[in-house]
Write a protein that binds this DNA or RNA. Structure first.
Length: 310
DNA sequence: AAACACTCCAACCGCAGCGTT
DNA sequence: TAACGCTGCGGTTGGAGTGTT
């Protein structure tokens, strides 16, 4: 098989075995999550230090939400923070307890692919329309991301500052962008509405024309989050518009108008949506789930990083 | 039932920043 | 101060699982 030297130089790649995980855990338990390269030099594992670190960070670290799909709130936060920070996944992940940069990155790239598909759908000739699955609004929970800036940057805003959802006053109503009739004509009316909403939102999303959003000081500092300005969301002549986009309201949390934005993300084990086969409608997951837990059950958890500390 | 399309995610790679020598 | 090693980050890829035709 391998000679001695070859054995020393051999670097294992690919999926991790349980024994390797065990060995890595032992090392971390003994020395802490550092000295990754010594794992190989000590002959514990034939993996690079890099590979060991990655495995620890993405899979073995405690309190990870492995196998859980992103909740609607997590999706919102990613969208908002991506708009603010760009593709700084590690930074964004620091706002999402239990999520890694890899998780966020994967989530975002999946979402981008869906958006691209929607765009393509809207541009596909009529003859091909019915060959493409029409995504539901829940597939792409797009919100025009608010532009919140750190206290040290950005322009002062005179608008209300307690809503992390897109705040748009009456003069800044999102303009409706009609879907081509060719799409409407081939869809059942309910689907037409969904596609039209998505298309509208996507048009806004890709538009270079910035809609002014308020700064979100609570999100920057204490990561609090208020729904009190929900009624200021864009007026779109579709009754379920807000319901579709923002199925949660403060009362569902049972904790008043303001609450830590991190709160909904602490989904206890079992509340996760596992696998695509489960097909649990995001909007149907009640956050009153947490009512059953003691108020202080999250106290021991580290608060998410605050942008003001960055 | 098989083939194909699509989604999700684990893991790799290259690069940059930082600390140490 | 340059060289080196380590760590962390973001981009990318490939395989497994699932859905659709």
């Amino acid at each position: 098989m391998h000679g001695k030297k070859e054995q020393e130089e051999y670097i294992r790649k690919g999926p991790w075995k349980a024994e390797e995980d065990e060995m890595l855990l032992k090392h971390v338990k003994k020395y802490g999550p550092r000295d990754w390269s010594s794992i190989r030099s000590k002959g514990l594992l034939q993996r690079t230090g890099k590979s060991c670190r990655l495995r620890w960070v993405n899979k073995l670290r405690p309190n990870l939400k492995n196998g859980c799909k992103f909740s609607l709130e997590e999706e919102r936060v990613v969208i908002e923070l991506q708009a603010q920070f760009g593709n700084r996944w590690a930074k964004i992940a620091s706002y999402l307890p239990g999520r890694t940069d890899n998780d966020v990155k994967n989530f975002w790239s999946s979402r981008q692919k869906r958006l691209a598909r929607i765009l393509q759908t809207s541009a596909t000739p009529k003859s091909q329309k019915n060959k493409t699955r029409v995504p539901s609004l829940h597939d792409v929970p797009i919100l025009q991301p608010p532009k919140f800036s750190s206290p040290s940057e950005g322009e002062p805003s005179s608008k209300p500052q307690s809503c992390s959802l897109p705040y748009i006053d009456n003069s800044e109503v999102i303009k409706m962008v009609s879907l081509p009739d060719l799409i409407k004509s081939e869809l059942p009316s309910s689907d037409t509405i969904h596609v039209e909403q998505e298309f509208t939102l996507f048009e806004n999303y890709k538009s270079t024309e910035q809609i002014a959003f308020p700064q979100i000081p609570e999100l920057q500092n204490g990561l609090t989050f208020s729904m009190e300005n929900q009624d200021l969301l864009p007026t779109i002549d579709e009754p379920c518009f807000i319901e579709e986009l923002c199925p949660l309201d403060a009362s569902e949390f049972g904790i008043g108008p303001q609450h830590p934005i991190g709160f909904p993300f602490f989904q206890p084990p079992g509340s996760c949506r596992l696998g695509t086969g489960d097909a649990i409608d995001n909007s149907k997951i009640s956050d009153s789930f947490f009512d059953d837990f003691p108020v202080d059950m999250f106290d021991h958890m580290d608060p998410p990083a605050s942008p003001s500390n960055l």
